[in-house]
Nucleic acid binder design. Structure first.
Length: 890
RNA sequence: GGUCCAUUAGCUCAGCUGGGAGAGCGUCUGGGUGACAACCAGAAGGUCACAAGUUCAAGUCUUGUAUGGGCCACCA
């Protein structure tokens, strides 16, 4: 094996290998040491029909960064993966496949054969997504992988159903539900998407039964008129007072229906009169209930017109609408039409218009379940991050309707209700009963319907841990720590897990819900199949590596808000990885002799630290404290920015550059210390970055010199803890030196002097500042390209033709071979002086403000005084330098 | 209709509990300098949407306005 990293950073050459090593080592599984505190995440199970998309990539990155961080902190971390059977989505795919390959419908095939095909499909494609997730570096415990329709989850679903049923919280009833005629199934309220669409109102006259004028009503859905059972008007509406109680005729059909008074119609809207069709509209349904009106259905489950519709029977709803309106118009009943925006409901899966329909379905009674779930969030048992999402949760939970859970599908958990073939008695039980409790009959058939997919995923945080069995896992890992998911499924999933967890386990299922936004395309559009603007994470990984993708997804994002996928961002992340790669290669190179053996180096005890070593140590320690704090608070983007800056700025740009002369110098003792510092600092940096970029950090770690007993993998190392050293003097020295170096580089750049050209420099300073300048001389010379540095108190020693700059306490002069352009110099100094004056005025103003001096905290006032003193010092220097320039010009 | 979010450099966006405006990309100037041109050094560039208010102090808190999004909602 090569003893140093490859010349170029090529993530493809090691990411898969490292993942395999991790997985085989068994380290993704939690350490079951009872002394270790648990930290648990259950992964939102992706659909078995799914392919890894950016949403999954975001999910995975956030969860993995958390789990790796906590693992390194010494928690017993469990990240439990799995997949969802995705009832409708999968059934649609399987139906398509059967149609294509066997030319049959599922009905032709029959339930049993269909389910065989569905399971075969699951076995073939169900693991595709979990293979893809591994590419992301997800350190979840695959040995505990679950599926929403595996044996344990089936048991949990039945148990849960039974419990709720026995408490009267699940009931069967005939209600007006949302029906998708294309999917052929009932939908819950949240599976209906509301959209305002351009539509039409038709105004039709319903003639009076007594031959009078009758009444005109507006409707956007004329095809439902066949099911009209009344016309309602507001009791306050003077226009229609006389008509209330009279009968009108359904046009053409001449069926008599009453005019009724009800508060529902708004006199301001339309004509103020509303046709009442209880089987086609929830409002009408309620009016119907209030007035004891009959219910007439006019459409079947495919939204075709029923025989009651006469010649329109058998027509599709839209076909019928067209013909019916034409006929009404011809017969003179159409008063007028109007173009209007009308609200519509669409099936969230197939986007066809949903038809409200009277149908017998199973429901969960929500009020009693919602109350404790609201309470759990209110008292902070579960906290949303960011907090604002709790409002969305409350809003929905406080106004919740009963949950329709039955679906007229085959792929899913079949409802555990059995009917006696003899007397029709219903028995709800886990298994088919032997004997009918009512008639003693021995033949039963099971309810045909399956449960809403979300019914089983609602149990995910505990069904996966073994519930209803009292397993070790359940005891140790429930309630879980954090749930990570997008804001788009707060209602579908998060809310339901909360009330189910409280109901079955007595505790809310997670302490925190970490909500993230959507990954959009570069223009800010939602990624979608129809737009074809989706970015495939696998392609991104192939091109840039999983580390870059993860880092990009976690950087520069505000919690809970959307992020755009842009090539520049992924490139920036990849470049960062490349930077770390090269720096590490440099470090390793300098640790080794020509044969690739590690040279001796100091250890914690023998190292003789120089100020730059202490400065680096202090910088890392300060960063560790902040980064840890940020990560505890889920502020991953802030932490990422600090790690980025620490590695690229502090370590690469400054420390390594300062280390180069030492590595090439004559002091062999000092080299021991430099090597020690380079490698120990690098190890800390790798640890800090590891949760974000697990692959590259692990790969680099494998090349570092390690003690015999060191862990094999970086991923199990412990999280850095700041040392408690007071290195403030060294920090001050290095910061002052860096300021001087920047000033000199600036002078050089302005003079367009080649960086390779060695220069002389003078620093005018007194007392402590002079001491600082002298101590910093080696740094200034090395990184400023200065051959000789003179630190003087007396300005008279200054050479002719020198460019100048000022930092607090010091004036810097760099003599130039070419004539200095004094006119430019004057301009620069004047501009600087003006800026300083403005700052001084601002600071003075602040400090002379009684309110500020008396009310602001002491440290803030002190800081302001220091600033003022510094600026005054700089201004004085600026004045002197300007004077000198003016003298030259004169 | 209700509600939430956004508005900061040319672009994309950070900015945690109020204490002198930041990053990446882009632009401009130099540069093969010991790991890195996927790089190095330097520079330019912002009335923090607008208006009031609170405060000694507002990008940050309050209210309102404008513009752009999202979510929820049974209106014919």
């Amino acid at each position: 094996m090569e003893k140093n990293l490859a010349k170029t950073y090529d993530p493809k050459s090691f990411e898969d290998r490292i993942y395999k090593q991790w997985e085989e080592s068994g380290m993704f599984a939690p350490d079951m040491d009872p002394d270790k505190k648990p930290f648990t995440i259950v992964m939102p199970p992706p659909n078995i029909t799914g392919q890894l998309h950016m949403g999954h990539a975001m999910d995975a990155s956030l969860q993995d960064v958390l789990i790796r961080f906590k693992r390194m902190q010494g928690y017993s971390t469990l990240w439990l993966p799995g997949t969802d059977h995705a009832s409708i989505a999968t059934e649609v795919k399987v139906v398509e496949k059967i149609k294509k390959e066997e030319g049959k419908t599922k009905e032709e095939l029959g339930r049993e054969e269909f389910l065989k095909r569905a399971w075969a499909w699951k076995n073939e494609y169900g693991n595709r997504i979990t293979t893809q997730q591994r590419k992301m570096g997800t350190s979840c415990d695959w040995s505990r992988e679950r599926f929403t329709m595996d044996e344990g989850c089936n048991e949990a679903v039945k148990e849960h159903f039974l419990r709720l049923y026995n408490k009267g919280l699940i009931y069967k009833g005939s209600r007006l539900i949302n029906w998708c005629p294309v999917c052929g199934s009932a939908l819950s309220d949240i599976e209906v998407e509301h959209e305002d669409k351009q539509g039409k109102y038709w105004y039709f006259r319903y003639p009076g039964a007594d031959g009078s004028e009758g009444i005109t009503v507006a409707t956007s859905r004329p095809e439902t008129m066949f099911a009209d059972v009344a016309i309602a008007v507001n009791p306050e509406d003077e226009r229609y007072k006389d008509l209330v109680g009279k009968m009108v005729l359904l046009p053409i059909f001449n069926r008599e229906i009453p005019v009724i008074a009800d508060p529902y119609p708004d006199p301001e809207k339309g004509t103020g009169a509303v046709k009442i069709t209880p089987t086609c509209d929830p409002n009408d349904f309620e009016v119907g209930q209030r007035h004891n009106l009959p219910m007439i259905e006019c459409m079947d489950e495919k939204a075709r017109m029923l025989p009651i519709c006469g010649k329109y029977a058998g027509m599709d709803r839209y076909e019928c609408r067209k013909a019916w309106v034409e006929d009404l118009d011809k017969a003179g009943y159409l008063v007028k039409t109007e173009d209007l925006i009308i609200p519509t409901g669409e099936c969230y899966r197939c986007h066809s218009a949903v038809e409200p329909r009277i149908s017998e379905q199973w429901f969960v009674k929500m009020k009693p379940l919602a109350e404790p779930a609201i309470e759990a969030v209110r008292k902070g048992e579960t906290q949303f991050v960011p907090e604002r999402f709790d409002k969305i949760y409350y809003h929905w939970m406080e106004d919740i309707k009963d949950w329709c859970i039955s679906r007229q599908l085959w792929w899913g958990h079949r409802i555990p209700a059995y009917y006696c073939d003899d007397c029709g008695e219903m028995v709800v039980a886990k298994e088919m009963p032997e004997v009918c409790p009512k008639c003693g009959g021995k033949h039963f058939h099971q309810d045909e319907d399956v449960l809403d997919t979300w019914f089983s995923s609602a149990l995910w945080p505990f069904s996966t841990l073994g519930w209803p069995k009292e397993t070790e896992d359940l005891k140790k890992f429930y309630p879980t720590s954090v749930l990570v998911t997008g804001y788009d499924i707060i209602f579908f999933w998060v809310a339901r897990m909360i009330f189910c967890g409280i109901e079955d386990m007595g505790k809310a299922p997670f302490a925190h819900v970490l909500i993230h936004g959507l990954v959009r395309d570069a223009q800010g559009r939602k990624m979608s199949k129809s737009l074809g603007n989706g970015i495939d994470p696998l392609e991104v990984i192939d091109q840039y590596g999983a580390d870059a993708l993860r880092f990009m997804l976690l950087s520069g994002i505000a919690p809970g808000s959307d992020i755009r996928y842009q090539t520049e961002k992924i490139e920036a992340a990849r470049n960062f990885a490349n930077k770390l790669w090269n720096a590490s290669r440099f470090v390793i190179m300098n640790l080794q002799d020509e044969d690739g053996n590690f040279k001796p180096m100091a250890d914690a005890k023998t190292a003789v630290l120089k100020p730059e070593d202490k400065w680096l140590r202090a910088s890392i320690d300060a960063a560790v404290a902040e980064i840890t704090d940020n990560m505890e608070k889920f502020e991953f983007a802030l932490a990422a920015a600090k790690i980025y800056d620490l590695i690229w700025g502090s370590y690469c740009d400054w420390y390594i550059e300062l280390a180069k002369p030492r590595l090439g110098g004559a002091d062999e003792e000092d080299k021991l210390t430099v090597r020690y510092m380079l490698v120990t600092a690098l190890l800390d940096l790798l640890k800090l970055l590891h949760p974000y970029m697990p692959f590259i950090t692990e790969e680099i770690y494998s090349y570092l010199p390690k003690a015999e007993d060191a862990p094999q993998f970086l991923m199990t190392q412990s999280w850095p803890v700041p040392e408690n050293n007071d290195y403030s003097g060294d920090v001050k020295l290095l910061e002052a030196s860096m300021a001087v170096i920047r000033a000199i580089r600036n002078i050089r750049a302005e003079a367009e002097a080649a960086p390779s050209k060695k220069l002389h420099a003078y620093i005018i300073a007194e007392g402590a500042d002079a001491a600082l300048a002298k101590a910093g001389a080696p740094y200034i010379k090395a990184l400023g390209g200065i051959e000789e540095l003179f630190v003087r108190a007396d300005r008279s020693v200054l050479p002719e033709d020198a460019k100048s700059a000022a930092v607090p306490g010091m004036e810097i002069y760099v003599p130039m071979d070419e004539l200095v352009d004094y006119a430019k110099e004057k301009e620069k100094l004047t501009k600087e002086g003006a800026k300083l004056e403005a700052e001084i005025a601002r600071a003075k103003n602040k400090l002379s403000n009684q309110g500020f001096v008396s009310k602001a905290p002491a440290n803030v006032i002190e800081a302001e005084r220091t600033k003022l003193a510094e600026y005054e010092d700089l201004l004085a220097k600026n004045r002197k330098m300007l004077e000198a320039v003016l003298a030259k010009l004169a």
